[in-house]
Design a binder for these strands. Structure first.
Lengths: 184, 184
DNA sequence: GTCTATAATAGGATAGAC
DNA sequence: GTCTATCCTATTATAGAC
């Protein structure tokens, strides 16, 4: 299946290099086809990018669901999810946001945002709802999950960026965070 | 002074759009000069970018120093610095890191890293050292300041990215963080 | 210090043959 | 489904006149 091969490779390249720095020529070359051949499968570069975002996000959703189901302890589930995201996301999360906001038109953006809501935010909210039942929190589960995802995004960066600011192990990130939002 | 005008505008554009998405033509056009005229002042695009990074970072350092000096309360000083950075940085912090790592050669990168260390990390470390005298912390001031800067970077993003994940007021970010790293 | 002209390259995209 | 050939546009950068 050529379409799948294109998306798999494009995912790797877009995530690592960003939208602008990834050319259709590069994608084609690494697939051992010519650049115009891509256009048989996808209308243009933007469509490939959109397909990459959707596809990737769906996979994340499936796995997040599974992790949450199989781990009853909320803190541990959070840690597992963070570990999973850190390993899976081959890229700089913030750069992806920037690319999306600058390279996609508003309709597409909204569409992808809905998919994200379903595959990312939803599961985090669910976990912090859970936490809300057993602990006294400083903010609403919605606010906290949004804040958490934001902080986590700073821990989901490419290899090269890691060297600049040393990072804590992701478990410590989660622990500090929870200690910070739980009262008492 | 043309050189200064170039850097001022280039700062704005690079920070907002990123390195790749900002063309020398655009810079020239907004200065009402032609694109080749830029090359009289700077050898190439990369040199402009480097100058922007150095210049900007120096200014940050001066102001951070001043804020810390004039605010004896550590928590309030942190909040003031965060507010200052959030307002001043016209850009996506993480994207800047990515650009630096992908568009600059290693020698330049190291040079800029030293400047950053002096203008960003140093002051945060100083603040958390201060905190360490009065409170019992989970980690070393060095680790905590590195972790703090990372988290803060997720709150320093362009206007367009803000719409995607709602953010807490920066004061709350600081409070949750401190509550998280202080024992008891 | 700024201009015009222009080189050199790279990018996205299309036409049409096989 | 993939190729060659090609177009159009945008980009960085240089040469040389004023």
């Amino acid at each position: 299946m050529m379409k799948k091969k294109i998306i798999d490779l494009a995912t790797k390249l877009f995530m690592k290099q960003g939208y602008l720095a990834t050319s259709t020529r590069q994608i084609a070359k690494e697939l051992n086809i010519t650049q115009p051949a891509l256009y048989h499968h996808y209308k243009n570069k933007e469509q490939i990018y959109i397909e990459v975002l959707k596809n990737f996000s769906d996979e994340i959703g499936i796995n997040m669901h599974q992790i949450i189901e199989s781990e009853p302890d909320t803190e541990q589930a959070l840690i597992n999810i963070c570990k999973y995201l850190q390993q899976t996301h081959p890229m700089n999360f913030s750069m992806m946001m920037h690319d999306m906001n600058h390279e996609l038109d508003e309709t597409t953006l909204r569409e992808i945002f809905v998919i994200w809501q379903k595959n990312y935010f939803y599961y985090f909210e669910q976990l912090f709802e859970r936490l809300n039942h057993t602990h006294d929190l400083f903010f609403s589960p919605k606010q906290i999950s949004s804040h958490f995802l934001r902080g986590l995004s700073a821990y989901i960066v490419g290899e090269s960026e890691k060297s600049m600011t040393p990072e804590l192990p992701i478990e410590e990130f989660v622990k500090i965070f929870l200690h910070g939002v739980i009262k008492k």
